[in-house]
Amino acid sequence: MSKQRKKLTHRQKERLAVGIKIFLGILFMSPIFIGLVFSFVPDDELYELPTIQTIIDNFTFYNYAKVLRTLPILSYIKTSLVMCAIVIVVQITVTSLSAYAFAFFNFRFKNLLFTLVLIAMMIPGQVVTITNFLTIRALKLLNTYLGLTIVSFTAGRSLFMFRQSYLSLPREMKEAATVDGCSELRYLFQFAIPLSLPSIASISIMIFIGEFNAYLWPLLVSREPRMYTIQIGMAQMIGSDAIPNYGSMMAVAMISLVIPIIAFIIGEDYLIAGMTRGAVKG
């Protein structure tokens, strides 16, 4: 009897702990909720702090209607999504093929080429931004999707994740397939790539969040409003007016946050798997 009671209090304690931590989580995320609440308050009410009563009385979708009417938000989002899709498809295709060469072949210059990939990973993308911009401009790719995406067509990180995934496949399977006369390409497309689907999911979600939120490169390449990504369009709003329209700003911020938040909640497990796999030794 007493044992049962003790168990119960232990469980209650745990529930209380979870409750407190969820409360902390809400507190931690409060900037997003603040943005959400104030996106429903008219701009004029935000030049001083509105009371809760003012917020309820003035609740309105006006900010959303206004920004959707005055700004090409949907075009910004479309540009962002198309850019993400291109990078995901091309980068995964390119790196999944290249990783296969490193994982399953012995060939001349293998070590040299592998070292080149390692060196490339040590050069931060920001450092080559200036000269890449000059290249893109010389190729007349400013304000094009190709210009936005071409610098991300390959990435050492994705290549490594694919290589890791291929190497974790059982060696016996490859040997058996070879004995049965399975060609290298067939093994790649019928076994190696389908068995690497979890890695593909991890890489896709990482690319998606990275590209959707990219700022510096789109800022340089997208010079015309028709090619603005949502980040560039959003950033234009901040500090552009002498008297900031906080309500509209919050509305655009909320619109731009919806897609990555949904992507994060759906892909969280894959994202975490991708981040932690091989990132930390030990």
Binding site: E14, R15, A17, V18, K21, I22, L24, G25, I26, F28, M29, P31, I32, I34, G35, F38, L46, I209, F212, N213, Y215, I230, Q231, I232, M234, A235, M237, I238, G239, P244, Y246, M249, M250, V252, A253, M254, S256, L257, P260, I261, A263, F264, I265, E268, I272
Partner: peptide, 28 residues
């Protein structure tokens, strides 16, 4: 614990958010 996934997601969430909207909320 049971339910820990909820606050884990909350604590991890800002990593999915872009700078521009965070900056917008911050300026306000």
């Amino acid at each position: 614990l049971k339910g820990s996934k909820v606050y884990q997601t909350m604590f991890a969430l800002p990593m999915a958010l872009a700078t521009a909207p965070i900056a917008a909320i911050g300026t306000y």
